[in-house]
Simulated scan of single mutants.
Amino acid sequence: MLERYLWSSRSATSAQGQGRDLEDQIEEIVKNLGLSCSMRGRFTGRGGNTAPFDLAIPGENNPLIVGAAKGFNSTGSKLSDAVREIEELADLRLPRQFVFAFIDGIGWKRREADLRRIYNLWENQYIDGIYTLVHLERFKEDLKNVAVRHELL
């Protein structure tokens, strides 16, 4: 399904992502839309619990949008930890919050079970989007739609 499609575009992802960090590209999209954001921090979610984020819009603590950017060229426990961070965002999100996951890197290709866990979060509407480098235009459109609907733009 989605994961097969995401990985069928892998060579384009590599070419597009040379020399650029996944988080930097995400931040650039957000700022080019004219939105403010915080990168790499913690947000407060359900029950007053906190979780780490890689992206928060419009800012820290109680943002409208949170994201986890997990680009790995390694394998093993780092990828499982990344999945747990995305799951934690999904678990702690408030009803009005949006959660986006950004995944990229060759290490994910060997971690099909971890990719499936992320895909299941999206399929069951625990997160609002999954993106790789080749899908950042789709993220831009999704972000713009959320921002307009919630009067951030």
Rank of each mutant, 00 (worst) to 15 (best):
D128F: 03
S14I: 13
D128R: 10
V83H: 02
A51S: 13
D21S: 14
D104N: 07
R20A: 07
D142C: 06
N73G: 01
L143S: 06
G107S: 10
Y119I: 12
K70E: 15
P63Q: 05
G34L: 01
E87L: 03
M39L: 09
V30F: 01
V148F: 05
S8Q: 15
D142V: 01
Q125H: 15
L79E: 09
F100I: 00
I106M: 11
S36W: 04
K140H: 04
W122Y: 15
L94E: 10
G45W: 05
P58D: 04
I29V: 08
L121K: 03
D104R: 02
I103Q: 01
N120I: 06
I57R: 00
V83P: 03
P58R: 11
A68H: 14
E23M: 00
R138I: 05
G17S: 13
L22D: 05
R10Y: 13
P52C: 08
V99A: 03
L89H: 08
E28A: 00
L55W: 03
I106Q: 15
Q97H: 02
F102R: 07
T75V: 04
K31N: 07
Q125N: 14
A147L: 00
A113R: 15
Q97P: 05
K70P: 09
Y5N: 10
G41V: 01
R96L: 07
D128E: 10
V99P: 01
V134H: 07
S77M: 07
L89R: 12
E141G: 08
